[in-house]
Every structure is written in structure tokens, then in C-alpha cells.
Amino acid sequence: MSDEFLTLATLIGIAHSGVRLATPYLYAALGEMFGQRSGVLNLGVEGVMLMGAFAAYYAVYLGGDPWLGVLAALATGALMGLLMALISVTMQAEQGISGIGLTLFGLGLSSLLLKVLVGAPVSVKGFSVWEIPGLSAIPVIGPIFFDHNVLVYLAYLLAPVSIYVLNRTTFGLKIRAVGQNPEAADSLGVRVNAVRYATVILGSALAGLAGASLSIGLLSIFQENITNGIGFIAVALVYFGSWRPLGVLAGALLFSTINAFQLWMQVLGAPIPSDLAVMLPYILTIVVLAVGVKQIRQPAALTKPYERGE
């Protein structure tokens, strides 16, 4: 057993698990990144994920196609985002506190809805694994990257799309301007709060999708508090990735690959106490956060509500 550590099959297994585990983190963290780049810290990701996860699950539970579940998750997430934007942008509530409120709200409401509408959770038929023809046959690369459900693929496509939107479109320019210097953006005719509404709603829709990637993707079931802290890790990953899509992608992959690594080490019977093994991803994330993150890249207006000084 111990002599079999880190064979090629194991390495492929770790990478394959890591790629899949990163999915909910990617949606949630990339979505959160948009909000933060425009100056809004949304700590409600966890609650939005739970609501999205339940909405998707319930749509499929009622007999809907998984894609209908995706739509339900996006719409529910967007609605939660609208609520968050109303509270934090229009009413200018302290962002951290309102985000925690949103998380509690989502946790409570999703549990309540499960009890009232479904009762005891049962499995549903969500997205199955779809091996991409051709690509999945490539040795090593194929089994790692092209042997997943469709929500996993979409999560990775979201990274380049985010880079493009943020850096190559007018919308992206406005987001960056509003997050860096809202007064200047305003004076140039950018509607600061409108941009922030857009990013918070977009981010929350993606958080809803993150939830769906669990409930009708990886797990095919909904359970109270199914996210178990993923939303908060996602917020940390935005800092970890220095507010850049590639950084977020790297962070999500690092975190989940280490998680996959520790699972494999336990499964293969490596002589590491399990308590220590499960701490590994967190310890490493903290270490990288402490030494690697360039705070200088933090959007200057992050957490600061904008009020026109007329």
C-alpha cells in the first residue's frame, strides 16, 4: 500500500478530483469577484448558493430538465442579488453585516422550503458525466479534464469569459472604474450604483449556479446547509486571487487539488492523522494568503458605499 503512493493513476485521480471539486468555488468566487471589483463585498454568497442549490434541486425534483434547474438557480441567485444590492448599494448598509444577514436568510429559507415543499430529501436525476468525444480519449489530459458533467466544463469556461468581460468590454471598464474611483467614474457619466447593481446581481446569479453545481451536478440531492462553508471560502479565494480571474482560478484549483490530495492520501492509507490531513487545504490557503497576496491590488472603493457629493 505505501509503495503505491503517487503512481500515475493516483496523480490522475487527484487532478481529476481537484478539477471537479473546484467547480462550485469557481462559479461563486468569479461571481463574487465582479461585485468586489465594483466595490461591493458580498458576504452573502453562502446564503445565495443555498437558495440556488435548492431552486435547482426543486425544479428537477418536480420533473424539470436539469437545464431548467440551472435557469431556476440563476434566477433565484439574481433575485437574492437584487436584495443584496438594494440593501448595500441603495440603502448603503454596512456590507459585511448585510452579507452575513443574507447568508442566514438563505440558510434558514432554503431549509424551511426543503421541509415544506419536499420533506425528506430524495435523490434527483441531475447532470450526468458527459465525456467530451475525442478530447476524453487523450491520455492523462482526457481523464483529468474531459470526464465531468457539463456544469464543470462551464465553470472553467467562465474564467476566460470573465477576463474578457473585465478587460475588453465597456462594462468591464466601468466595473473597474467604479471600484477604483467612483467619484471620477461618476464625473465621466458612469452610473456608479447601476454598475454595482449589475455586478452584485450577476455575481449572485453565478453563486446560485454554484449551488446548482452541487445539488444537480456533483451531488444530485439537496440537504440543509449543503454548502457547508463553500461560499465563505469563495470570498477568501477572491482575495487569494488578487481580484483577477486567473488568480481566482489558480486559487480554486490549488485549494481543491490539495483537498483531493489529502483525500487520496487517506484512502491509500498514508500515515498522516486524518485531523491533520483535512486541515491541509486551509493551512496552505492561509499561508499563501499571508505571503502571496498583493493587497495593493484591492479595489480602492471596496466596501465603501457611494454617495454623490453634489
Binding site: 451531488l219 484512502v267 486524518s274 485531523d275
Partner: peptide, 18 residues
């Protein structure tokens, strides 16, 4: 293997996969 949590459904699923 242990997930280190009673409620980490996602990690438990991945453990089963592993």
C-alpha cells in the same frame, strides 16, 4: 478516510468517488 466534518456533503461525495 475522514472528511473532518459531519456535514461536508460535497467532500464526502468526492471521498466516495476517490
Amino acid at each position: 478516510s475522514y472528511t473532518g466534518s459531519f456535514g461536508d456533503t460535497a467532500l464526502a461525495a468526492e471521498a466516495a468517488n476517490t
